[in-house]
């Protein structure tokens, strides 16, 4: 597996392009915190960010921190990278995780031994710096 990139700057990898709706998510991530939108009406979580709750359509759900822990839903160990900035990382793991609060995210699972990957494996968020002051959430096995 690739060495951990967490908290090291990794030049060249794609940076997300926040929208007006998602900007609070990325601002929190840049500060090292994972926040998701929560609905006061139905208690549902909405991700990716939206202007309304995806469960009950109530307006403007508010941002709330999540614990950053969850479980591995599925993954692939990637041996052929789609673009050059990921080439040096091969083989690397792309995973989908489900946070304990419910929302699902795609991310890389860093430092993972392929033999330790299993559905339901516990994971926790880490933050990878991709440009000065700009991070993306990643996960490691907990």
């Amino acid at each position: 597996m690739a060495d951990s990139m967490a908290d090291d700057q990794v030049p060249g990898k794609p940076l997300p392009e926040p929208t007006a709706v998602s900007a609070p998510y990325w601002a929190a991530v840049d500060d090292g915190e994972l926040r998701m939108q929560h609905c006061a009406d139905c208690s549902g979580w909405t991700f990716p960010p939206s202007t309304r709750c995806r469960h009950c359509a109530a307006g403007e759900p508010h941002w709330r921190p999540v614990a950053g822990t969850g479980e591995l839903l599925t993954w692939s160990v990637v041996h052929q990278a789609p673009y050059p900035s990921y080439g040096p990382d091969t083989p690397y793991v792309v995973a989908v995780v489900r946070l304990d609060e419910g929302p699902q995210l795609m991310a890389n699972l860093l430092d993972a031994d392929e033999g330790a990957l299993a559905i339901g494996a516990r994971v926790r968020v880490v933050f990878e710096e991709r440009a000065p002051g700009h991070r993306v959430p990643q996960f490691v096995l907990a």
Partner: peptide, 29 residues
């Protein structure tokens, strides 16, 4: 370009995904 087309540009594309990876995750499961 293909990777961007196949994935969510903001929440999936930045993680080194492209078409085989997205199908592979279904296959793993």
């Amino acid at each position: 370009k293909i990777a961007r087309f196949a994935s969510h540009p903001e929440f999936e594309f930045p993680y080194g995904v492209y078409i085989p990876v997205l199908y592979a995750m279904a296959a793993t499961r």
